[in-house]
Design a protein around this nucleic acid. Structure first.
Lengths: 187, 187, 187, 187
DNA sequence: AATGCTCCAGCTGAGC
DNA sequence: GCTCAGCTGGAGCATT
């Protein structure tokens, strides 16, 4: 490994790399085989890929990704793009983080027989979200339970109103601070 | 455009492409500028990118993506990877789609003062999810409301039990059928 | 490996893949290390990457790549983009393949003292290339030797004339036929 | 453009970007169409892509790419990977740049009837390249003309010998110095 | 500011 | 013929 003639050293570099590349390609093939086998057994391969990706991401990456997605949810809520999916709990927490935290009280959640919920009820929930936001309520006080289609609509109304209040961007909308790169651990 | 000498035709192809590439690069620059401006104004650029991507995807793509994500959620629930996030409503609906649909009844949802929920309560919710699944209950009957940390734990228990029941892969786990290619309309 | 509960099978797939991905990442790191070491020793890393790529490509890929590059050379010659680099031998051979092959005779190659070659000589070589092409000479009969700047210029002239002759695309310009997929050898 | 409500500003950013993305996609389609048309007319699309890429690269990129390729050629020559393609003129010049430049003299180039060149002649040329390098000749003094298969073999021999001479990496093998960033001038 | 890595999207080639 | 997965190239992002 020490001093040697350049041509030999160069050849050595080339051959070491090619050897390693061959090993890498073999493993990549194995991975492909496993996915193919899972597909044959009836599993949803794309979903499995997603599961693998989630399991492999380290905590810092996970937090960063989640923050990005939560903020995107807030943006989409504000723009009326929720499409029936209410805000996730994490996004709620983010939006709620701004003011001084108060104990939450969802006690007065409204329930309605599912069959009576139509477009009008959805629109009404939206208006109520706007009003509640203006009245100083908090996002956690959404009166509609999970599974109720009005829940997302109220969220949209609430977020629209929140984004229209002042001239300033809400803190919850801002780019999250940088994560520490830190941890290293080579063998 | 008609018959011409090959060398002229070739030059024409080259120059048309280069012209178009220049226009494309200019627009790509503009896009980058807009993102940069949004960043300067305090918006979370990555989240904004996500919003744009969602808004641009056509309905078929959206459905395919959502199906992939829902199934991945089921997989993760089964494997205990939920990490505190309960199943989304769409994933619940998917898992529930298998058996004959029955009217849901969440009436007996349990509420507990937040401060009394510790690790033991979480574990208990998990066990209860397992039991409820074995007892033939349905995923929609999760007794814990949105925002309750036990909700995700019950989901995990339920899904674990569901995936352990038989020798066969649940239908909800299978690769979703092909989407219609449909709409086309170029000049 | 045989029948097992779906949740266990799913977990097994996930874990096998993650294991393999970890091995792959380790090897990828090793490769990166080798390149870094070569860089430290003074080698040109990008060039080394190119060498590795060439060494790893299988014969069919190599032939396909070379064909693509040769045709691109002919196109560039025709469009006056050679930039001082004369056609490679392989590109010459391709262009020459069309007519009935005749024994070549480069005997009358012209040599000129380097210092007397200026812009005018280059332009003259170009004109001579055009004339020679029209006179039915062949690309192999380029009168200027390797290293002579007029060699590329004559090539350009020749190719321009060749591409202007008729209404039809020369055979040498056409997409090469498909390669056989052939050889396979899995474990 | 000035102060406005955050929700409107956000919507504006989103919509501006989507508008621009749509334009970009349209142009990308046009480009694809042009390539497809060229393919239909009989041109080699991949080669055409290469021509476009070359035409679009700015001078600094071009120089960097050529330097990388030239050094890779030297490496490949040293490792016996030339595969019948002799060194290009630029690579020769690079290898020759080290010592004090002397006027070149190719006067004694050897010509041999093509039919008499077999494996033995090739091997002999290789040996001769080794000897010539050791004798202090220069790469420009390759006695075989372009088109002669022995030319590449002599180059390989010469480079092998050059890389085996000492303990030090030849200057021509080293990473080229940084390019000037230079030219900028966007509106 | 420049470089290198990582990710993603778009293109290419195979397969039903 | 169309879809689909693999892959290459480019773009963003973090780093020095």
């Amino acid at each position: 490994m020490a001093n040697q003639r350049p041509s030999d050293e160069l050849r050595s570099f080339r051959d070491r790399i090619i050897r390693l590349e061959a090993e890498k390609a073999e493993i990549a093939d194995s991975i492909k085989d496993v996915y193919a086998e899972a597909g044959t057994r009836g599993y949803a391969v794309k979903s499995l890929r997603l599961v693998v990706k989630r399991q492999m991401e380290d905590p810092a990456d996970r937090r960063a990704r989640e923050a990005t997605e939560e903020i995107a949810e807030l943006y989409m809520a504000t723009l009326g793009m929720l499409g029936g999916t209410p805000l996730g709990e994490a996004a709620r927490a983010r939006l709620n983080a701004d003011p001084k935290a108060e104990p939450e009280d969802n006690s007065e959640q409204t329930t309605l027989a599912p069959e009576t919920i139509g477009a009008e009820q959805i629109a009404e929930a939206h208006r109520r979200g706007v009003d509640d936001a203006r009245a100083g309520k908090r996002i956690l006080e959404n009166p509609f339970i999970a599974g109720d289609p009005r829940r997302a609509s109220w969220d949209e109304g609430f977020c629209e109103a929140s984004g229209s209040d002042g001239m300033e961007i809400p803190d919850a909308w801002r780019r999250p601070g940088k994560k520490k790169p830190d941890e290293d651990g080579e063998k």
